[in-house]
Amino acid sequence: MTRFKYQGAILPTITLTAALIVWEVGCTIFDVPQFVLPRPTSIVHELLENFGPIWTHAQHTLLTTIGGFALAVVFGVFLGVAVGSSRVVYQAIYPLLIGFNSVPKVALVPVMVVWFGIGTVPAVLIAFLLSFFPVAVNVATGLATLEPELEDVLRSLGASHKDIILKVGLPRSMPYFFASLKVAITLAFVGSVIAETLASNIGIGALVEQASANFRMPLVFAGLVMVAVMGILMYAIFAAIERRMTGWATRSTDFGIGG
């Protein structure tokens, strides 16, 4: 167990360090120009040098992402419950949902700009549009896979549709829900950064866009590193929440008592 735990922390560190070394050495040996691919050391240098402004942009992106993500969770749960608990709603809107999900959200940025102007609002909305889908689908799956026997037991007791959803459907879809949050938060980052790149003066997306227009590649990469770090942190937070909230779903039966 402890051995496994250490592996969990050490292995990714080793891979990351190895990749950075190959990158650094490769850039040096082949004399890759900074404006094509900056070396890791110069990225770190840039990051430390300009940490103030980068952090301002990063904070903005983080808030935008969390805003869109929060909307996505509320709307996704609502939609998931509707789709997962009603055959009629499922048949009525599932094809629409699939269709909507196939539309590249980047194509919606101009629409958002026409409606709401450039800045924070389109970024929040794109983050939302990109991330509500996994939440909705997972909640719906959790509700739709209710054991028929259990439903019979409850219905024979006179349980209403609402009772069944509240007492059994929602609790048992929680593992699906928390698993979807990990996916949704990373998608929300993608959405907000895309929207900032195209239609904002603030945020990591905007920073990266401006820096690349000025051929300041180390700054571009510094911005990307910042997004990656924030993404990993948020993922880790939701993974921890998932473990805490739905431990019963991942417990093995090792604890079983004979007899």
Partner: peptide
């Protein structure tokens, strides 16, 4: 009651 105990795991 059924073949499957179908207790709520939470």
């Amino acid at each position: 009651a059924f073949q499957n105990a179908s207790l709520l795991p939470w």
